[in-house]
């Protein structure tokens, strides 16, 4: 019984962490049709907010505003200077953001070195659930992800801003004719996606650790989740992270960590091969 609860909690944790990682990539792809290869580097940059706060001698909580500010400014700069020239050019944008990812990684390495750094848990301690004691910080992140996604979905489906966003994606030309500044919209969408990537790095840093090359793993796992769920919708993202996170957690519990990674890899290959649209098709 306790064993089952632990497995379920681990699955919930895997899924929540993956949802957090993949959200930014899904937003940028869904709204702009750009596969942001530098997504993982924004995750990494967000995680480095801990390092910046530490070096400046500021309290750990200031990492949050530092993360939003630094990642937001870098994303805005990149969108205005590079990415905006590549909208509706799928392959070119892939190469361009790939180049950006290398650049960002190298710059971070120049400033902070290659060393792997540990980040202390912001919330220490274990929570007793039935016969299981589980890290409190993970429970907080799981709760934040569930609440955040519920709010996001409601806002996207019900608010007028949500309607405007869907209108731009659906028919950009008519959206412009309705007075919507699609250029500013694109910048806002890109910056939002990148800041969310940064926030996921910030929140997950205590578990992942911080190093310049941590972005690659984040990008690949997010990409797998989107491939399985279906690129470009919130629903697809939800299904994708549930399946990929669930498979990874299940196989890890039943066999080993390696089997978990392997299972996800096989799943992603099968989907890319047999069902590239993913499980959830756009209506």
């Amino acid at each position: 019984m306790d064993q089952l609860l632990l497995i379920l909690l681990n699955a919930a944790w895997q899924i929540a962490a993956l949802a957090l990682l993949a959200l930014g990539l899904a937003i940028v792809f869904g709204l702009l049709r750009i596969l942001n290869m530098a997504h993982g580097e924004f995750v990494m940059l967000g995680a480095y907010a801990h390092v910046i706060a530490g070096q400046l001698g500021l309290p750990p909580l200031t990492a949050l505003p530092i993360c939003i500010l630094v990642v937001g400014l870098v994303a805005l700069l990149i969108e205005r200077v590079v990415v905006r020239h590549f909208y509706s050019r799928m392959f070119d944008s892939l190469l361009a953001t790939w180049a950006l990812s290398i650049l960002m990684r190298e710059i971070v390495e120049m400033i902070w070195g290659r060393a792997y750094r540990n980040v202390p848990m912001p919330v220490e301690g274990l929570v007793q659930l039935g016969g299981v004691s589980y890290p409190g910080y993970r429970l907080i992140v799981i709760f934040l992800v569930i609440a955040g996604f519920a709010c996001l979905w409601l806002w996207y489906r019900k608010s007028l801003t949500g309607v405007r966003i869907r209108a731009v994606v659906n028919n950009p030309s008519l959206a412009r004719a309705s007075g919507i500044n699609t250029s500013r919209f694109s910048a806002a969408a890109f910056v939002t996606g990148c800041v969310l990537a940064g926030l996921s790095g910030l929140l997950l840093a205590p578990m992942l650790g911080v190093e310049p090359s941590m972005g690659l793993d984040a990008l690949i796992r997010s990409f797998f989740a989107l491939v399985v769920g279906g690129l470009g919708t919130l629903e697809g993202l939800g299904i994708g992270v549930a399946v990929v996170g669930g498979v990874q957690a299940g196989l890890s519990a039943a066999l080993s960590q390696t089997a978990g990674y392997l299972g996800v890899l096989v799943l992603a290959i099968l989907f890319l091969w047999r069902r590239p649209d993913g499980l959830y098709r756009r209506r």
């Binding site: 007028l160 869907r166 209108a167 659906n170 028919n171 008519l174 309705s178």
Partner: peptide
């Protein structure tokens, strides 16, 4: 493409 295909009639008009 004189309407937003993916939106409802109400959403089309709300814009």
């Amino acid at each position: 493409d004189m309407v937003f295909d993916g939106l409802t009639v109400a959403e089309n008009l709300a814009l």
